[in-house]
Design a protein around this nucleic acid. Structure first.
Lengths: 139, 139
DNA sequence: ATTTTTGCAAAACCTTTGCATCCCA
DNA sequence: TGGGATGCAAAGGTTTTGCAAAAAT
């Protein structure tokens, strides 16, 4: 599931109605930039038409997350959305420049096991965020 | 640095003024419960006196974080504060019951190394949050 | 006496909600 | 046509801010 048509078809099958707004919001989500806040999606959709309301953005993004089509990550105050098609990864958020590096999630496999064993905790490591300082910002 | 007097002394040395409000806020932070939202701190301080404003709570907590005395963690929407004296640990937040398990941070040592090596990223692993499902909630 | 800190209230911020209208199926 | 989706505006919750008064040094 990775391009707009596929997602729309999935939604159709699940009895959701396909509206121009939803198409544009999904397009925005899939548009390369994959760390989009609701506000970012709103801005991107507005370049195509001003006839979309911010409430619709929020409602649609929520729906997409509920349907397992998008993920929702809290970057310490800012909430970002991404298509799950990207697969699991870690957001490395730089405290200085706010740049977000996507790290491969395989680095978490060992941690996952350990948390299961020691705490019986099934961590959702699909889209987590870690804060720190990136190479460029280590003054 | 772990009890109220030590922290107050530190603040005094750094030219901060010691007010009853600050004493009570620090007391609250150190009071066993170590996952306190600003609202929690406010509630706890109010059991002692009603003469403290919520704005003061926010301002003082911010100051304590800036001074490296408290940590600030975003639990997906809710922000919690803790004294750094607790040492680094992971917050395992259950998606179902919202219970927070404190996990030992040593499980992150390997991850830390890997992020340094592969991404040049110096992760701040002092107080991170992971979401998932705890033992009790695995229906 | 000076400067920080506080309280108060208002504002800012992001997100949600109620309801009438619209429009997809 | 019927019910879900939208737009609008208002409300919601949390956090921040401006300013005068109060308190700490």
């Amino acid at each position: 599931m990775n391009d707009t048509e596929n997602i729309l078809e999935t939604l159709r099958q699940r009895q959701f109605r396909i509206t121009p707004q939803r198409e544009m919001i999904i397009d925005a989500l899939l548009s390369g930039e994959h760390h989009l806040s609701a506000e970012d999606v709103y801005a991107q959709v507005q370049t195509r038409t001003s006839a979309v309301n911010i409430a619709t953005i929020y409602r649609t993004l929520d729906m997409l997350v509920e349907q397992g089509i998008a993920s929702r990550t809290d970057l310490g105050g800012q909430v970002i959305y991404a298509p799950v098609g990207h697969g699991p990864h870690i957001h490395l958020v730089c405290r200085h420049c706010s740049f977000v590096i996507d790290a491969d999630a395989t680095v978490l496999a060992a941690l996952d096991e350990q948390l299961q064993r020691d705490y019986g905790f099934a961590a959702d490591l699909g889209h987590i965020s870690l804060f720190g300082v990136c190479t460029g910002c280590k003054e």
